[in-house]
Design a protein around this nucleic acid. Structure first.
Lengths: 215, 215
DNA sequence: GAATTAATTAAACGTTCGTTTTATTATTCC
DNA sequence: GGAATAATAAAACGAACGTTTAATTAATTC
């Protein structure tokens, strides 16, 4: 047989991406076979090669789009304010919301880096570094303004990112805690960790987050 | 050919473990072939099967011994004191020291869980849970004694563990920061994160840690 | 120093892998 | 409605995989 009734390139490609993220997150990139992926999509393995020339191209595409999405999400969420506390709060909220919504894709982007070619690894790491630099800038500005107590900006940024991203390891939607509760907790942990001096405006802001949890 | 001059089972087994940890950490469990591992040890692939009946047995052995080592290290480091701040400081110091010294093995134990059979996964997770429970107990005791300000003991424990273990992702010995500096920074971040009330004795203890960094 | 045991090599087994080739059918275009 | 094109199936390719079997040699035992 050959082309099947109702088949459509765009639909198939979208289905491949979705199935690939889920399968790679569950089994790992090396452990997932192209035949397994094809079966999940309901297609023959050869059909996958119409959309992605190699298995690694598929992986890279998933990772690149995940990182591009993360950078775009932060661009959209980045506040106009220059207040470091406000900016840090926005960064934390955006980071947690983005990663909880994309648990599988985050898993893939964090765990399968070693399966990329050197050149592509560099591309992904460049995007990641740019994203992390945003946090370091916020921390440095806050430290210089005297509203944060931070020993080492780089170390603190890494610690915060590991802590926040780690939420995808244990968080399961619909269990004990809601996304809003988790976000509020991570926000207050972050602010304490950086020794944030709470201004009047900030206190009102954090108070609102806490009220939301109480609902 | 067959048995080689000077060959010895114990030496070979130790070499296999060592090479396996390093190769799996670098390439991933699925991506590492038994032939590759054998070549690294300087032996034929079939020789590996004298020590580990299957590839998965090898992985499981590495993970189990890593987790057993972690639990034993904490048993040895656990202070007699009932003061939550002292206990938390000991937990953080032990955790970071243990994981920095075993970066590769930690990588393997954290990243390759999905390659274990269900039964063996359960065994490893049981050990991990027992270890994490120690931290939750410290946090709960501290919260009940009023020396820690912690919203949610479980969530805080996970956040701290992710933050601390994450050190192996970016830390490289011999670069900008020493192990002592990193440990001291993580200790103070932890204490701020849990909102620790610093007593006189604790202040002296943390002060000593800070002095060590200044060396 | 012969017999036994431990450690290893060399070769092979069947399976699965990523990928390519070729053929076939559905859809689109004019 | 015929031609062109897009989307797929089916089958095959060579390579690599984990593992097993059989043979061989070093070390140990008595």
């Amino acid at each position: 047989m050959a082309r099947t009734t109702g088949s459509d390139g765009e639909k198939t490609e979208a289905a491949v991406r979705e199935a690939a993220v889920s399968l790679i997150a569950r089994l790992g990139y090396e452990a997932m076979s192209m035949r397994q992926l094809a079966a999940e999509v309901g297609v023959q393995a050869a059909a996958l090669y119409r959309y992605f020339p190699t298995k690694e191209d598929l992986l890279f595409t998933l990772m690149r789009e995940h990182m591009e999405g993360l950078l775009k999400a932060w661009e959209a969420a980045r506040p106009a304010s220059i207040d470091p506390v406000t900016r840090l709060a926005a960064y934390v909220e955006n980071h947690i919301a983005f990663h909880i919504e994309r648990r599988h894709a985050t898993h893939v982007s964090n765990m399968e880096l070693r399966s990329l070619s050197h050149e592509r690894l560099t591309q992904i790491l460049k995007m990641r570094t740019a994203y992390e630099k945003e946090l370091r800038t916020i921390l440095r500005d806050g430290a210089e303004a005297g509203v944060f107590q931070v020993d080492d900006t780089g170390l603190t940024a890494m610690a915060l990112i590991q802590m926040m991203t780690g939420v995808i390891v244990w968080f399961r939607p619909g269990e004990r805690l809601s996304i809003a509760e988790v976000t509020a907790s991570y926000l207050s942990m972050t602010m304490r960790l950086v020794g944030a001096t709470i201004s009047h405006g900030t206190a009102r802001r954090l108070g609102r987050a806490r009220d939301a949890v109480a609902l």
